[in-house]
Design a binder for these strands. Sequence first.
DNA 1: ACCTGAACACCGTTCAAGT
DNA 2: ACCTGAACACCGTTCAAGT
Lengths: 234, 234
Amino acid sequence: MTAEATQRTPLSRERVLEAAVDLADRKGLRALTMRALATELDVEAMSLYYHVKNKEALLDGLAETIVLEIEEECGGLAFDDSNTDWQATLRERILHARAVVLRHPWAPRVFESRKDLGPTTIRYMDSILGIMRAGGFSWDLAHHAMHVLSSRALGFSPELFEPDDPDAANVDSAEMMAAMAEQLPNITGMMQAIVPHDPDEAKVGWCDDQSEFLFGLDLVLDGLERHRVAESAG
Amino acid sequence: MTAEATQRTPLSRERVLEAAVDLADRKGLRALTMRALATELDVEAMSLYYHVKNKEALLDGLAETIVLEIEEECGGLAFDDSNTDWQATLRERILHARAVVLRHPWAPRVFESRKDLGPTTIRYMDSILGIMRAGGFSWDLAHHAMHVLSSRALGFSPELFEPDDPDAANVDSAEMMAAMAEQLPNITGMMQAIVPHDPDEAKVGWCDDQSEFLFGLDLVLDGLERHRVAESAG
DNA sequence: ACCTGAACACCGTTCAAGT
DNA sequence: ACCTGAACACCGTTCAAGT
């Protein structure tokens, strides 16, 4: 083994992310510091900044990495378009996601701390919407459903549709929309179906926080009441 | 105005917590550092440690403070024992809690970061359980319900019943239980009803994470299916 | 192109010391 | 009893410099 062979392989964004996942798995999210990560990679802390813009970008990359792992666990994002049993399909998806999250208990916290989702996560959400649409959901119900599920399994950030920049809400330039519609047919469809809904007060972006909250709350309360009645009958 | 009159009032745990809430409200949780908080109180950072053990204890106090504010918003924890309309009662409670959380958007993050709940939070949970019991919930269903609601409104930490210390799970010393039963009749009752349930593998503490997850997931999926069918019919 | 050393502006916290 | 100064062991990050 020559000196050349011993010489460590150069860093790369992929290797940095890989080591970050590993470090978080082993020692927790708090232990994932730029300095500790560098040490793990036998490098000085400042070298990391060549491969990743800063710590926020590292965490963005981590979130995307986990979503990719979920996709693998699911065996891809494809699903039978003619299968109307959305419930079984979605349930399986979410349980796959949970299996991954159990391997990386820090993942939900990382998802929650991201302000906006990366392309991988958005594509994943689009496929979830696709499952619901194939199952017969209206755009409106699918939208509600995404909010209700946002706390579950994968941290679907409800902020997705609430850009900080008020201008970004009006990204309806024709070319842009066409390009998106190809890659993300379901998200695009949902946005178009929902935007004109009610240009009122409380809803600054696409979502009315309060009514989404009430939808989810009543869904849960109604479900519990049903269980209670079933118990009483039994 | 003499020099004495000008002299600032001495610090206290209450004043520290008050200032911490205010600072987090105004500048966000990230800006809430011991040093910045001290500056806000016209004091050196190290003075805070006389009134609060460390930053973790400060955050514990913050969580308790918010729960107290929720109690106030609800006009107390008392509820009509003979009122079987648990759904309306609980819904109102949760909406009050949400109103408070909207005033303190950082609160959920603080709740999530606490390992175990303080006495105020536990008392609040006990009263929620009381509402369910008055409405006819079995202990088992009430337990499931707490898990489902844990992501909603108030960050009921599901960890409550999963002590790190394995020994702590067996705190059944008669005196201890009796004292608890008085203050927290519902939580005590639930624990007694649930513990003997199934001393198997996956459930290390009182809760089986996986089955709680499935209960919540299916509750949500069933609710969505009901909405879909209603839509299709309409 | 890739990595480093030194430095800066921050953290939480301890501990001995002041009043 | 209550507060402080100095110090320690950490952070993330910039920037000029090395190969």
